[in-house]
Design a protein around this nucleic acid. Structure first.
Lengths: 210, 210
DNA sequence: TAGATTGTTAATCGATTAACAATC
DNA sequence: TAGATTGTTAATCGATTAACAATC
């Protein structure tokens, strides 16, 4: 399957499809875009286009074979190919991504956490959190593809710079500031504030006092 | 300031502006859209339009008075008006939002956490996590506007239903499944998988093996 | 054949970008 | 006046939606 340009919205819909199809009863062999759209309250055409982009298993009258569709979506999401990552953050925040795997397969393989407030190693579940000073030594014998920034606003750029100079190819930024990264590094920003604001605005629209 | 239609991207940019302006040296009294755009690597026109939507303090030749702009953005984001919320989740996941305030003012006032795996109350920082059974009794004497779903995929719809019937007006969903909510309830989905996939795709585009 | 479904092509909608007029 | 900046109006771009042709 070729990599074509896809919208953020489509990316967000994909895992929803995947989870929905997985919850279908075993005896369901095929599923159509129409049925998925109705079940999930989405536009029929959107769903059909999305599926067409990731799978060519669609048959007239039948829809898509569930098994094949699951495989195709998973392959599109690339969750088989692990991406090594480390998280830098403060205290409890760290544990978010250290335990994210519980949600479902994301393809992210979080190797360790780093905490500036920590003086000695600590273990959360199966993951180790190191003091931030050990960031450099940790990278010495490992390839780490992605750095996740969960630090305070003040520490974010510094930690980002260190990770970049240690060779990460991508930065996943959870802080609400702009990070400067070199051209060759991919930056993905996550904005909780934007989500909360969106929620608030929709509440206001329906006349809620917020 | 009237509430106009705004894009998700604009919502995501707002907190970035806010944090940037706050880091300016004290003696900077005015800031222009041009300067912000250059500093943050954004399009000049986008920034100007964004600012025009939230503030009318713009002056030709000068730009915006920093203090006023900060106030206007904060007012747009609504961070003074707290929205009461509870989080339902499993184990460590919960702590994400229980400690989110450290990131910056979000306007979200998280009253408590609820964990299905917990048998008795536990305290994280200043927040209490209760066993999930106590959800109903907790709502008895409190108005809770927003329910945050950080549960496992399997528990999500059930917890969502309970929160809705207890009267929340909005659901902030971190699980990768479609939640059914009544028309009058606002649903905001957060998709980590989509973000990770986007990151992965951009890495692939630049020829990274992922 | 009729009906359900796919996939494609055209139309609509909305957001971003570009061009420009207005102002201090 | 010239220049920096704002704000507005028009053009472009991309995504979603609608309409339709193709297939089993």
């Amino acid at each position: 399957m070729e990599t074509k340009k896809v919208s953020n919205n489509m990316l967000a819909r994909m895992p929803i499809y995947l989870n929905y199809i997985k919850t279908l009863p075993q005896e369901t062999k095929n599923i159509s875009a129409t049925k998925i759209a109705n079940a999930l309250g989405l536009g029929e055409v959107s769903v059909r286009k999305d599926l067409a982009k990731v799978s060519d298993g669609g048959r007239c009258k039948l829809g898509y074979p569930c098994e094949e569709l699951i495989k195709d979506i998973e392959s599109f999401l690339g969750i088989q190919r692990k991406m090594e990552a480390v998280v830098a953050g403060n205290g409890e925040m760290l544990q978010l991504l250290l335990s994210y795997d519980g949600f479902g397969p994301s393809g992210l393989d979080i190797l360790a956490g780093f905490d500036a407030n920590l003086k000695e190693e600590s273990v959360i579940g199966e993951k180790v959190i190191y003091p931030m000073e050990q960031l450099e030594s940790f990278f010495e014998n490992k390839k780490v593809l992605i750095g996740i920034i969960l630090t305070s606003v003040g520490d974010a750029q510094d930690v980002c710079d260190r990770m970049v100079s240690l060779g990460v190819e991508g930065i996943w930024n959870f802080t609400p500031i702009h990070l400067n990264v070199p051209e060759h590094v991919v930056l993905q920003n996550e904005s909780f504030t934007a989500s909360i604001t969106k929620l608030r605005m929709q509440l206001q629209e329906k006349g809620e006092e917020v």
